[in-house]
Nucleic acid binder design. Structure first.
Lengths: 207, 207
DNA sequence: TAAAAAAATCGACTGTGGTCAATTTTTTTT
DNA sequence: AAAAAAAATTGACCACAGTCGATTTTTTTA
């Protein structure tokens, strides 16, 4: 049972986020002032800061919600019979599509997510872990089918693929990879990872 | 031959960076105002902005210089006989040590470097590429010794290892990996990359 | 060398993110 | 129901990043 107070809090938080979405998407993040945002949400400026610590947190909260939704949608859709590579591509490309839809948002979100401020702390840790766990079933399945080694920690495997995704994102933000080539790049890197960089057939001679 | 004007520009730029180093390291980046910085450098506030576009650019300029120096030192030192893994570890650990020495600087530097603003553009692209090329000899050498496949683009190989480094950095910033375990983590991931995540055929490989 | 042009310097000014003490609203106590 | 306590709200206020037109310094022209 929620008290009036708690009801209001929840509702007001939503008001702020709704106003943020509207203004951020219309005028951009930097171009939207907190005062404007407060006006649009129908509350005082100071009140915003009892719901969010910083301006970035507002953007982050919205993005996280959206991403969470996309992910839940996705796991339902991913076909379990597809190869590991295919499944990973579907997931990471969906994420990329989201992050790249608005470059400004994506950049700010990733900057905070990958190299966060001290004070956020534990939150991120959990979200990150949650996300990894989301992928675990896929890796486990791939292990069972013999697509992946089974003498490795899932966390390491998961991390490894995630690292590649990060790299591709970074290259895209730096203009080194155009949008059309993202899939190709990811695909190549996934292949590399699975196969390994080690020289194959002729047995390597020890020096 | 430098004109008086050009002489002054070079010197003044250095003044600003010197002042920045002093104040940033003493009081931190956030706690140092541009006015303070200008005073310390002995120039007007507005002048700073004809040398650097933003406050972050000042920090970045300093960090880049330092990093460039560390890298040049390093390539001279790295022993060419060591294994690929050993060489990579030396290089990436040196970088990590630098980035982690001051967490605040490191964070800001990486945020800008990995997910940069639009307007910086080409600069970063070149720096990134320069860095990759710095490592090329090491990979080529490893290919010749048969440690690495030689049917792969150096850029992809380079990128792949760089991705792992990024991941480890991110985990460190998120508090998922404590400083003492960085080497271990990197080491594991490098092994994984070289060997590949694929399940090896239980049947003995042809000798 | 004097005048004109170009470049560099400056600090008052602006807009904004974030704070905080005073005020209002809700809940608890008597 | 009234009083007291707790929580939420607010906008004036502050500090600071970044701008810009006025001023000074350097270079070029005549």
């Amino acid at each position: 049972m929620y008290s009036i107070r708690e009801q209001n809090k929840i509702q007001k938080r939503k008001c702020i986020l709704d106003a943020a979405v509207q203004l951020f998407t219309r005028n951009g993040y930097e171009q939207t002032s907190i005062e404007e945002l407060a006006r649009q949400a129908g509350i005082g400026k100071g009140t915003i800061y009892s719901y969010f610590q910083t301006k970035k947190d507002i953007l982050r909260a919205f993005c996280e919600d959206e991403l969470e939704y996309i992910r839940s949608e996705l796991t339902a859709k991913t076909s379990a019979d597809a190869s590991l590579k295919e499944q990973l591509l579907v997931i990471y490309l969906a994420e990329f599509r989201y992050v790249s839809r608005n470059k400004e948002f994506g950049r700010l979100l990733l900057q905070e997510k990958i190299f966060p401020q001290e004070h956020h702390g534990m939150e991120d840790f959990n979200i990150q872990n949650q996300y990894f766990e989301l992928l675990y079933p896929i890796y486990e399945q791939a292990q069972k089918r013999g697509e992946l080694r089974d003498d490795m920690e899932l966390l390491h495997i998961s991390g490894h693929f995630y690292a590649l995704y990060l790299l591709v994102l970074s290259c895209w933000f730096n203009g080194m990879i155009p949008t059309e080539e993202i899939e190709q790049s990811l695909s190549t890197l996934i292949d590399q990872t699975i196969t390994g960089l080690q020289k194959r057939s002729p047995a390597p001679e020890k020096v």
